[in-house]
């Protein structure tokens, strides 16, 4: 990947991040977004993060790219995350499950 192309990605992501953070503060002042919009926005995080999780474990190889150990890692990470509400413990549990499953073959 060329540096110029990578920089164009960086500038675009930095810009959309800034706009999403600044937009309402700069232009909404003391008005609020319509209730249905706020309601829909609340589901965007869980939906896109879930879709991203699946895309990453597939690694561009379709459903066949998902390994058994990766499923174990996601399951353990999800359960421990729900239990502790702590991302660090979710990561530790997920990686431990991954290593255990890989080790067992």
């Amino acid at each position: 990947m060329s540096v110029a192309f990578a920089l164009s990605i960086l500038v675009a992501v930095a810009t959309v991040t800034y706009v999403s953070r600044a937009g309402m503060i700069l232009f909404l002042a003391d008005r609020t977004l319509p209730e249905p919009v706020m309601r829909a926005l609340r589901n965007v995080g869980p939906a896109v993060l879930a879709a991203l999780t699946i895309t990453l474990v597939a690694g561009g190889e379709g459903a066949g790219g998902i390994e058994r150990a990766e499923i174990a890692a996601l399951f353990a990470g999800g359960v421990v995350g729900a239990w502790t509400r702590n991302l660090t413990w979710a990561l530790v549990a997920g990686m431990a499950a991954l290593w255990l499953t890989l080790g067992l073959g």
Partner: peptide
């Protein structure tokens, strides 16, 4: 594999802390 585990953990945290109850967020995920 760590990023996927991180995102999976973020899903669960986002579902659990959703304002207005976790059910719609769980359905969304």
């Amino acid at each position: 594999v760590a990023p996927a585990v991180m995102f999976c953990g973020m899903v669960v945290l986002a579902v659990r802390s959703r304002i207005g109850g976790p059910t719609p967020a769980a359905v969304a995920a």
